[in-house]
Design a protein around this nucleic acid. Structure first.
Lengths: 267, 267
DNA sequence: GAGTGGTCTAGACCACCCT
DNA sequence: GGGTGGTCTAGACCACTCC
């Protein structure tokens, strides 16, 4: 909320990490500016935002553009939206970008930890039925299966079992064993994740998990299974990540306006 | 995709459960119609949707309205969106409505199970610091604490510990002990949930959990902590739900366009 | 009744994908 | 180069909230 002049360079400050490749549009700049203002305490939790018309004047854009910006904040759970009343600030918590969510390494750095990754095994073999279905390959198609141990400041935290279709696996196979971020390396080869489906539940540690995470066989782990796709909708990765208890939690915001979360019976 | 005439009554069929109170706007009808078409197989997984302009003609609405409808499908993870190409159908899975997610009972019915709820205890006492903060009350404010056991077809599945501010707790206190859906009863009193924040992790069963769920003390449970607010942004409920392993999983969809999910270090 | 956000329209220009 | 979705504008009307 510093300047308001749209041509100015001051808009879109430091609060929210920019997604690489996110185009710098007007409404994104306005959104970033409002996010910064909220984070800076200009509008505390429970405060009311200026009216759309007032914001449109201040930023010298149309009301439609302001509404696009506010829709972003709404989706992040930062503000409410209801007819007849000005928007109310719900939370001043910082929100993670998609990139931080998809990449363990980027996430770790964003919270001030030192990420590590050690590749234990890479094999190429025919995919199992579930894997082929998730990657939308014909059954028995060859896939690359990659087992990695992820650490935070040297401490083992998570076992990652990723499965890739051949065209991606051929790239991953050549990555260094100690690379801390496969997704950054994949980006360098033009492979960009844009969508992901996550399933979160609980799974008992098998003997491999137990050895790597230094826990007991059968101990419960927090499991996140994730299917990521690129912008064409092509599945790029199917992963089974198992976290030691007490290391991470997942948070989701949703509303009547956007329902990204759902509850399912296991299997 | 049956008629396309906007005035027609045939739009907005049977596929997606309607949220109670969701206004029947043009774009919602179009979205519902497209969802039905996808679920009915008119556009299989991987197929391309008609162009926005074509849809605008078919439904006799402006392109803006079509785009609003498609934004709903995008948020649900049903279709992709990228410049230069027609939208691609990602999945033909049915998506849960916000109401089904917020209410255990409604969710259970939507998957064909018989929900049950038994209230074990209701107490009124000063809130703990975390509770007051979550409900945005001054510290030491009185709250109602409600302990319930939730069942699916008679089988114990989840222990729910909900905390309410006084104005809500006074209502809940009078609900029947065997009521299967508190949220439906609250709606009857004009209390509507519109936003929720969820934190999902793992917690060991305490003695109370163990007795109610018939498991061992210390066994790992899947925990969902949830803060729900009404349309004014006022916190209405703060709940700690613990599921037996193997009974449920949570799924989330997100994308570069909307990032509702995040990963955090545990407390 | 004034103020506010929700919905809808019509049109414009541009960036990008594909052939 | 034609088709497509992304962005932006300007204006209109309505439903709702609050004083």
């Amino acid at each position: 909320m510093t300047s308001g002049k749209t041509g100015g360079a001051g808009v879109g400050g430091t609060g929210q990490p920019k997604d690489p490749k996110a185009p710098q549009t007007l409404y994104r700049k306005v959104a970033a500016d409002l996010r910064d203002a909220i984070a800076a305490g200009a509008y505390g939790s429970g405060a009311r935002l200026p009216a759309e018309g007032a914001l449109a004047e201040r930023y010298e854009v149309s009301r439609g553009t302001i509404r696009q910006a506010l829709a972003l904040l709404r989706a992040d759970g930062l503000v409410t939206s209801r007819r007849g009343t000005r928007r109310v600030v719900l939370s001043d918590t910082r929100v993670q970008s998609f990139a931080e969510l998809t990449s363990f390494a980027r996430w770790a750095r964003s919270i001030g930890e030192e990420p590590g990754g050690r590749t234990i095994a890479v094999v190429r073999e025919p995919g199992r039925p579930l894997e082929c279905e998730q990657l939308r390959l014909e059954s028995e198609a060859y896939v690359y299966r990659v087992l990695r141990l992820r650490t935070l400041s040297g401490r083992p935290v998570m076992v990652e079992r990723a499965v890739y279709p051949e065209w991606v696996g051929e790239l991953v196979e050549r990555f260094p064993r100690e690379a801390d971020s496969h997704s950054t390396l994949l980006e360098g080869h033009g492979v960009l994740f844009t969508d992901a489906d996550h399933t979160i539940d609980l799974a008992p540690a098998d003997t491999e998990d137990a050895v790597l995470l230094e826990c007991g066989v059968g101990d419960a782990l927090l499991r996140e299974r994730r299917r990521s796709t690129d912008s064409t909708g092509t599945p790029v990765e199917w992963s089974d990540d198992r976290y030691l208890p007490g290391t991470v939690a997942f948070t989701v915001h949703n509303s009547t306006a956007s329902t990204a979360l759902s509850r399912r019976t296991s299997q």
